[in-house]
Write a protein that binds this DNA or RNA. Structure first.
Length: 218
DNA sequence: CTCCCGATAT
DNA sequence: ATATCAGGAG
């Protein structure tokens, strides 16, 4: 596990590597962001960003999503994958916004997670990115980076990972480091071919050193 | 836990 | 061919 001093070094190094890390899902408001994050489950941001421009041109308000047949919405998001469940969730989500929230995306995490298709991770993204609340959304990248680097234990659940990160990182740095960890995981500490040879954190990364030994002897 | 699912990288 | 992608519902 990383020591306090090492965590400071990791955070500073990531800040140097990705100084302008931010949400890469294109959106113009909280509603579009919510839809985009729901769509992004098990899909790349790049793919979602190919679909959402046309989608947001056609569907501007919650009413627009429920005023078309489910099959039509399914076809409009088909390329992203998991399209049947996502289309259904989006229509339920929009009905709930209209019925319970005056057509507006609520700011409270407790209310956000009640929406169809919105779990803890999506709620954290929305509160953080759209409403400026400190939060650490643990997605596949944050989880992988945290475990490889030793912020937490390999067996920890995503909720445990989030709790540990919140405890070990100052609250005013949550949102920035959250995005930097995503960039670090997406572009450097990748799942399939992590760039350990050029990693400035290799010396304190147990997983990285293990991988280097493996490739050296192969 | 399984299922949902197409696009892309390896 | 297979693994992975800003996960969540049942």
């Amino acid at each position: 596990m990383l020591k306090k001093q090492e965590i400071r070094y990791v955070l500073d190094t990531m800040a140097e590597m990705f100084p302008e890390a931010e949400c890469e899902l294109t959106h113009k408001n909280a509603f579009e962001l919510t839809i985009a994050v729901v769509l992004s489950a098990q899909a790349t941001d790049a793919l979602v960003n190919k679909v959402t421009p046309g989608l947001f041109e056609k569907y501007k308000k919650p009413e627009d999503y429920i005023n078309v047949p489910l099959e039509e919405l399914e076809q409009d998001i088909r390329r992203i994958g998991l399209f049947r469940s996502k289309a259904k969730n989006i229509q339920k989500l929009c009905r709930s916004l209209i019925d319970n929230h005056n057509g507006i995306v609520p700011q409270e995490r407790d209310e956000l997670v009640k929406l169809a298709g919105v779990g803890r991770k999506t709620a954290n993204v929305v509160t953080s990115v759209a409403f400026g609340e400190p939060a650490i959304a643990v997605d596949t990248h944050v989880e992988r980076v945290s475990k490889r680097l030793g912020f937490c234990r390999w067996k920890d659940s995503v909720l445990e990972v989030e709790k540990t990160l919140m405890k070990k990182i100052p609250e005013n740095e949550w949102s920035d480091t959250h995005h930097r960890m995503i960039f670090f995981g997406r572009y450097h500490c990748k799942s399939q071919r992590p760039n350990c040879p050029e990693c400035p954190l290799l010396e304190l990364c147990r997983e990285g050193k293990k991988r280097m030994r493996k490739t050296a002897s192969a």
